[in-house]
Design a protein around this nucleic acid. Structure first.
Length: 1049
RNA sequence: GGGCGCAUAGCUCAGUCGGCUAGAGCGCCGCCCUGAUAAGGCGGAGGUCCGUGGUUCGAGUCCACGUGCGCCCA
């Protein structure tokens, strides 16, 4: 079966479409699973995206990484079940539905009806499902889309209910308060995302009030920019570790008054004073003060109205005493919860004060003035001014937002903090810093998870509460069946408003209340965090499967999921099962635009992944995303894709095309077997490099270091395989007969291409499968697809370090030879007589000597001299290579460097020859160095050109003889004739007849080298004629012209 | 305001345990090679390694402070 000859770089896109068709037709994905069905499992969790927007490149990144890992593990012999998932609930979905329905705010939603609204959510959440599916398929992400889990499905919701009921039973799900930004006009809390859009600079009153201490020892000065919150004050906070002072006023109306403030804030006092006492903040803790404003009743027993310690107190502004109103600030609220402060909340849902006070019915922002006026009248204001600061406003209606404590359900995650931290330490994070840094630090500051949302489209909290306030019995429903039994009705839809209508009589003795559902829905992060369980309808089904598969082996998402999915997965599994949820987490950084900014629709710099894939192909896009540090942000530049395509994909396919062309001419099939030890050294070298590659890439991918792994593969293909092996061995393929040497070459190149395809298959599944199918197609034991094959494993016995060292030295010689030619200005086509090399150690010298043909041919020289002794044709200078030496030399380094630089050439050579360089330093005595400590540069005698590096000196004798000049001209002629052949579009194997005519040196060269030229041209006849009549002129560089006629044989 | 991270050539980035000739690829310029190549080879121009201070014989690297940027959170 001949090898395909249509795998060309410019056909990449067509080839991808073709192999996609094959995968569908042959059900290749299913086949790879089937092949591994009895293998040990490798568990992968898919983080569910929301399909209510078009997918972007960042989604391609996450999907590429997941696909890479799953394909790799499959090839490495594991069974990797891959179930897709869709996230369906949550505020973003609701906002999109509001927009589509033209609604503004919750009131409008409720007027329309929750049923209609949720119906819109349910349909619009899959609005772009087709795009997602198309992208997934086109980019080659193998995942089971047909059987995807969907977070709003009845079974999924049932598991969520079961989990919540478990938590409720264990006392881990409870009602509390949460301080939220709230728009009083729209009567709704805003998400942090919405708040972020509406910051404005505004002027607000700031007031410093006197809080008189009950013990009569002066007053605390307390500063606030929200005077309206003062009626809700229940405590004052100090920083326990900073100094506070009591000062006596020395001037003005209040002379003699005692006030307290932080020592660091003394500079803000505008009156003359005398410091009376200095104490640490902690010494003030517990002191009681008189209520500033007592308009609303509250439990006044301690710790209310006392001084409390708090770390969040700063010395940036204010007085160092912070007024605590737990209803209106998160810090205040959290502190209050810890120490048991009452929550005083005298404001109603429209932002107006409740009855029973001088500010009754007044909107809070307007109450600032009233509160100030009354405090002034009562002599409680120390100072009053206006400050400008940035304050959040509602993005819809521009009202200033208020921070309100609202009823909220919590999961008691703080009880599991230690356990979550321990679990986190068991996770392999890539990059490591995310786990120990961002995530670890954040877990340390864990607060209870506020899990409820006052919204509509979400998993309804399955908590029913007795509506008789005296009873208020709570009951959590753990299954659909239970709900149906209690309510006596079928559960048609586990969403609002249907479940809201299901009620039953309170079962408590003597209570005549009705059990009604609490109106909130769950945070959508809970939905996805519970996916290990809910995706399999645990525990109603798949009980053992779910338990045995937890924790999974691998997850990967963008780093913005740290506090999202990465956290909720961990929290749910820790609370429910006492286990972590994942063993490995690959956290991906963002994709930025070319100027390093986050892509934004408004700037119009959003990259469309479909466009990129249509233009460059999915493999190129995947390689670009994968072969770079995953944990750093990517600046997306299109020209990077061009480079990848040209350099890596172009080279790989062209090496293949070269192989296929000649293999097909020779009828080589790939099942030949020349034993490795009988193959030429070049072949053994390539095989050694190949296995070294397997070994190194395996180490990289174990750490999910796709950057280094991919770089190694590309370097192998471009440098070792193409630029060295194929370039230097081309002629072996050109020979007419199929000798053992030629068979070795085919076999070696075939093996390298085939296993490179296998190695790279998880990265670039399309082109590698195409290559594999062509290369392996005729072999016994071949798989139908590369993705069913095994991932290559290194055979250490085939790695020959000394052979690789020898070849590396040889390549250094060649490189220095090229540099020497360049320095002398002699083109490579001009043969030269001699190349001298000095400075190789015995082993590499022997290798180079044995393989001198490679050097001679590559550099087009006649003889190679490997010198034992330095020649008089070059001179050396020495310098210290500090990198190695300095660690041993320490402070002597500069003196040694100076001494070394002063050595003459003879001394340098001697030093290198003896192998133990010794220098006399000023003041430092004789110092012994290693050969590798010394760096040498070279200058050459006349007639020679040379370069040196790494202790190696290469010199080239550049004087020409007439014979050499004639040969150079002959090569020039051949080159032009080969070009003519190519211009005629002849096939490489076509035989030709040549008639030629030339005068002068060109004629001489042609005549002298005619046999060789004829052979190279595949000329079956090569006839000199007497005139140029009927022949075409061909220009030869150097001013010559020859005349030829080439005809196909 | 807090946490994490980043800052090196025109661009994208390496730079390990501290070692003054600071690298690679792309782009640019010159030369060379080419019957697999959308390639390749040799060289050149291009650097206040963000700033300041410190540790050290020696700092792109370690420490401190500052500046700018990104992300997350408040």
């Amino acid at each position: 079966m001949p090898f395909r000859e249509d795998l060309k770089p410019y056909r990449l896109l067509a080839l991808e479409e073709e192999i996609l068709g094959r995968w569908t037709e042959e059900k290749t994905f299913e086949a790879t699973l089937e092949r591994r069905k009895d293998a040990p499992r490798w568990i992968f969790y898919e983080g569910p995206p929301t399909a209510n927007g078009r997918p972007g490149v960042h989604h391609v990144l996450a999907r590429t990484v997941k696909d890479f890992a799953c394909r790799l593990k499959t090839m490495q012999g594991r069974y990797v079940e891959r179930r897709a998932g869709w996230d369906t609930h949550g505020l973003p979905v609701e906002i999109e539905a509001e927009r589509r329905l033209g609604l503004e705010g919750k009131q409008a939603i409720e007027e329309l009806g929750i049923a209609r609204f949720n119906e819109e959510c349910r349909t619009s959440v899959f609005r772009y499902l087709e795009d997602w599916n198309a992208l997934t398929r086109r980019m080659g992400y193998w995942v089971d889309l047909d059987n995807a889990y969907i977070t709003c499905d009845r079974d999924y919701v049932e598991t969520l209910w079961w989990i919540l009921a478990q938590f409720h039973e264990r006392g881990l799900l409870f009602r509390g308060h949460k301080v939220l930004p709230y728009c009083p006009r729209c009567s709704t809390p805003l998400s942090s995302h919405e708040v972020g859009q509406g910051f404005k600079d505004v002027q607000d009153p700031s007031v410093t009030a006197r809080f008189a201490l009950e013990d009569g020892d002066g007053a605390l000065l307390v500063w606030t920019t929200t005077p309206w919150t003062l009626p809700a004050n229940v405590a004052v906070a100090v920083h326990p570790l900073v100094d506070y002072v009591q000062v006596e006023v020395r001037e003005g109306e209040t002379a003699g008054e005692l006030v307290w403030l932080a020592k660091d804030r003394l500079s803000t006092l505008k009156v003359a004073y005398e410091v009376k006492k200095t104490v640490r903040g902690e010494e003030l803790v517990g002191k009681r003060y008189r209520r500033l404003i007592d308009w609303y009743p509250v439990d006044e027993s301690a710790p209310a109205f006392t001084v409390l310690p708090a770390d969040f107190v700063t010395m940036e502004d204010g007085t160092g005493f912070v007024h605590m109103a737990p209803a209106y600030g998160q810090d205040d609220y959290d502190l209050g919860r810890r120490v048991g402060l009452p929550v005083l909340h005298p404001v109603d849902g429209t932002g107006c004060f409740r009855p029973g006070s001088p500010v009754e019915g007044v909107f809070v922002k307007d109450a600032d003035k009233v509160v100030l006026r009354i405090l002034k009248e009562e002599g409680k204001v120390w100072e009053h001014e206006v400050v400008e600061h940035s304050y959040p406003h509602c993005w819809r209606c521009d009202s200033p937002l208020l921070y309100y404590a609202r009823d909220s359900w919590y999961l008691k995650t703080t009880d599991f903090k230690t356990q979550m931290i321990a679990h986190n330490e068991s996770v392999h994070w890539f990059p490591e810093s995310v786990g120990s840094g961002r995530f670890g630090q954040w877990l340390e500051g864990n607060v209870d998870w506020a899990i409820s949302r006052d919204r509509y489209w979400g998993t309804p909290l399955p908590i029913w509460i007795c509506d008789d306030a005296r009873c208020a019995t709570q009951h959590a429903v753990g299954s659909m069946a239970e709900l149906e039994r209690r309510a006596g009705k079928p559960v048609e839809d586990p969403h609002r408003p249907f479940v809201d209508e299901l009620t039953w009589a309170c079962a408590r003795e003597g209570c005549s209340g009705t059990m009604r559902r609490t109106p909130e829905v769950a945070d959508a992060w809970f939905d996805s965090g519970a996916m290990p369980f809910a995706q399999w309808h645990y525990p109603f089904e798949n009980k053992e499967k779910v338990e045995s598969e937890l924790p999974c082996d691998f997850i990967s998402e963008a780093v913005d999921q740290t506090r999202g999915w990465f956290y909720t997965l961990l929290a749910v599994s820790t609370m429910l099962k006492g286990k972590p949820a994942y063993r490995t987490c690959v956290s991906l950084d963002l994709i930025l635009d070319g100027s390093g900014k986050k892509m934004s629709k408004s700037r119009g710099d959003v990259i469309d992944p479909f466009e990129m894939i249509d233009k460059y192909g999915a493999d190129v896009v995947r390689w670009h995303l994968l072969v770079r540090p995953l944990g750093t942000p990517l600046r997306y530049e299109e020209h990077d894709l061009v480079e990848i395509r040209n350099r890596f994909f172009g080279t790989l396919l062209n090496v293949y095309a070269f192989f296929a062309t000649y293999a097909n001419i020779d009828g080589y099939t790939g099942d030949d077997e020349v034993p490795l030890r009988e193959r030429p050294v070049f072949d053994r070298w390539l095989i050694s490099r190949l296995h070294g590659l397997f070994r190194d890439v395996a180490k990289d991918v174990d750490r999910y270091d796709t950057a280094h792994a991919g770089q190694r593969i590309a370097d192998f293909v471009v440098e070792d395989l193409s630029n060295w092996y194929v370039r230097r061995n081309r002629r072996r393929f050109f020979r007419a007969e199929l000798t053992q040497d030629k068979r070795s070459a085919y076999q070696t190149l075939h093996a390298a291409l085939l296993s490179t395809a296998q190695l790279a298959a998880p990265f670039i599944p399309f082109v590698t499968d195409t290559l594999y199918r062509s290369l392996a197609g005729g072999l016994a034991g071949a798989e139908p697809s590369v993705h069913m094959a095994a991932w290559p494993q290194a055979d250490e016995s085939l790695i020959d370090a000394s052979l690789e060292e020898g070849m590396a030295a040889l390549r250094r010689v060649v490189s220095l030879g090229h540099a020497s030619r360049d320095a002398a200005g002699v083109r490579v086509r001009q043969p030269l007589a001699r190349l001298s090399v000095w400075g190789l150690d015995d082993a590499t010298a022997a290798f180079v000597a044995a393989n001198q043909d490679i050097v001679l041919d590559e550099l087009n020289v006649k003889t190679l001299d490997l010198l034992d002794e330095p020649s008089a044709d070059f001179a050396l200078e020495a310098a210290l290579d500090k990198k190695e030496a300095a660690r041993r030399l320490g402070a002597k380094t500069p003196a040694v460097a100076k001494a070394l630089a002063a050595l003459d050439s003879r001394a340098v050579c001697e030093m290198l020859v003896t192998g133990t360089p010794v220098v006399d330093t000023e003041g430092g005595g004789r110092i012994e160095l290693k050969p590798s400590d010394v760096r040498v540069s070279v200058s050459c005698a006349k007639g020679w050109a040379g370069e040196c590096a790494g202790g190696l000196v290469v010199t080239l004798y550049v004087r020409l003889t007439p014979e050499l000049e004639l040969e150079g001209l002959a090569r020039e002629v051949l080159r032009q004739l080969q070009r003519t052949r190519k211009d005629m579009d002849l096939k490489v194997e076509d035989r030709v007849h040549v008639r030629w005519y030339a005068e002068g040196a060109a004629g001489e060269a042609l005549a002298a080298w005619s046999e060789w030229i004829a052979k190279e041209l595949l000329a079956v006849s090569f006839e000199r004629v007497d005139s140029a009549d009927g022949l075409s002129p061909v220009k030869i560089p150097g001013g010559h012209v020859i005349y030829v006629e080439i005809t196909v044989s």
